[in-house]
């Protein structure tokens, strides 16, 4: 089932285009693991003791302890995720699909920005969307209302999307060549920063109804992002949000970060955002054509 990992799970992804009612089924597969082995506790304790004394006593508690050896590995814990991300990136690059991973706290206006962007730009190029949320199909439905294809990934207890989940979502979504793929990550400013999904860019969305010091409080995310979108700027007259200070904090963490100010509902600043998007999509397609 899974081309990259051979995991055999149709799991993770709940539906492609519509209103399947399979949610519960798919999900159960993923989590089978931890439940069926409820007897684990006593193991932990037996273990630690037998090591310490075994060699000096000459008599071992465990018959096979004499074969114990140390293996040096020196492997990054995220290497498995990164392998899946590389596979996703190759898949997307071969098809000239420009992919961005949107990250933010909950409520920054990511889904509104995506829906508005698709509505305004869908005549120019095709879009598809991977929606990540802990649960519900709500965001994917909001995206489908714009006419774009969307796949909802429910992470259950997970706090972020990982590259494996996105790989499965891509199989279901089957995005058009030369399209734009938006991945809307779970609303969380911490965990998604560590997981490469195979995107070309991470975009961090910060709304002016939040604290202007978020780049300092959650620096990893702002460090990983190439673009910061400061959203809901139409509300600035009613708030005490210091835009200059916020931008300075973001630059402190990531001197190379680009910053766009816009309002996805009122429309301020959207032209610049659309230019950013169009230019990078063109470059992605040009790179694909050069490679072929």
């Amino acid at each position: 089932m899974c081309l990259t990992c051979g995991c055999g799970q149709p799991g993770h992804v709940h539906s492609h285009d519509g209103h399947d009612h399979d949610h519960d089924h798919d999900h159960d597969h993923d989590h089978d693991h931890g439940h069926s082995h409820g007897h684990g506790h006593s193991h932990d304790h037996d273990h630690g003791h037998s090591h310490e004394h075994a060699s000096t006593m000459g008599v071992t508690h465990d018959a096979d302890l004499s074969t114990a050896r140390v293996v040096k590995i020196e492997q990054d814990i995220l290497s498995v995720n990164n392998r899946h991300a590389d596979a996703n990136r190759r898949f997307l690059k071969d098809r000239g699909i420009f992919t961005v991973n949107f990250v933010s706290s909950p409520g920054s206006g990511k889904t509104t920005l995506l829906a508005r962007t698709i509505t305004d730009m869908k005549e120019k190029f095709p879009f598809s969307v991977v929606e990540g949320d802990q649960q519900t199909e709500n965001d994917a439905e909001r995206i489908r209302a714009t006419g774009a294809a969307a796949t909802q990934v429910n992470t259950g207890k997970g706090c972020h999307l990982d590259a494996h989940m996105v790989g499965h979502a891509l199989e279901h979504l089957d995005p058009d060549a030369e399209s734009v793929l938006f991945i809307e990550n779970v609303g969380n400013l911490i965990c998604p920063s560590a997981f490469d999904l195979g995107e070309a860019h991470k975009i961090v969305v910060l709304s002016v109804t939040e604290g202007e010091d978020k780049p300092l409080k959650y620096p990893d995310m702002f460090f990983e992002a190439d673009l910061m979108i400061l959203n809901k700027v139409d509300l600035l007259p009613y708030l005490s949000f210091d835009v200059e200070r916020c931008m300075a904090y973001a630059k402190q963490v990531n001197p190379d970060i680009r910053i766009l100010q816009l309002s996805a509902t009122a429309g301020d600043g959207l032209d610049e955002w659309y230019e950013w998007l169009s230019a990078r999509r063109d470059a992605t397609i040009a790179a694909k054509n050069r490679a072929n």
């Binding site: 302890l65 050896r69 293996v71 590995i73 020196e74 990054d76 300092l216 620096p219 402190q252």
Partner: peptide, 29 residues
């Protein structure tokens, strides 16, 4: 991670160590 230099309080610093998440070794049978 992006905190100031403890000597000059400047922020023009580049992290060199302390952010690793790595398996070093195993004891196996």
């Amino acid at each position: 991670r992006f905190g100031p230099c403890p000597q000059c309080n400047g922020v023009d610093i580049e992290l060199r160590a302390g952010d690793a998440l790595r398996i070093q070794e195993l004891e196996v049978d």
